[in-house]
Design a protein around this nucleic acid. Structure first.
Length: 111
DNA sequence: GCGTTGACGAGGA
DNA sequence: GTCCTCGCCAACG
């Protein structure tokens, strides 16, 4: 059935991110029980376009609100474009009001 | 099988 | 606040 692998958990959490909100790799990592494995989350995102349904990796940024993973998309500007389209303000490849749009997966999982 | 890399984060200085 | 170092787990050479 479902693989309880680290990746699957990551994908599931990322898919829970509501529109107009963003989250951080660390927060997701913590949500799956591996707080320090934030690097793995980013690595998992690399496969996000292969998993079904597709994972909204564009809603995942680093702790600084910087779109570090934009280069992994079809186009480097696609990521921020999608975020802006969802109502998120982007400036210099960085999420503005990051603290406001930040969505903590722990709140949903813990729910 | 071993060493390095990687879309990161936290802690210490 | 910034800069450096370690750790975390999986994939790649």
């Amino acid at each position: 059935m479902k693989d309880d692998s680290f990746f699957e958990n990551v994908y599931e959490v990322v898919r829970l991110i509501p529109k107009g909100r963003v989250s951080s790799y660390g927060a997701i990592a913590a949500a799956v029980g591996a707080r320090k494995a934030a690097r793995m989350v980013g690595y998992a995102m690399n496969n996000s376009h292969v998993v079904e349904p597709d994972v909204p990796a564009h809603r995942v940024v680093n702790r600084k609100g910087l779109l570090t993973g934009r280069h992994h998309f079809s186009s480097p500007e696609l990521m921020e474009q999608l975020l802006v389209d969802e109502g998120i303000e982007i400036k210099e490849h960085q999420v503005q009001n990051f603290k406001k749009v930040f969505w903590d997966p722990l709140e949903e999982i813990l729910l």
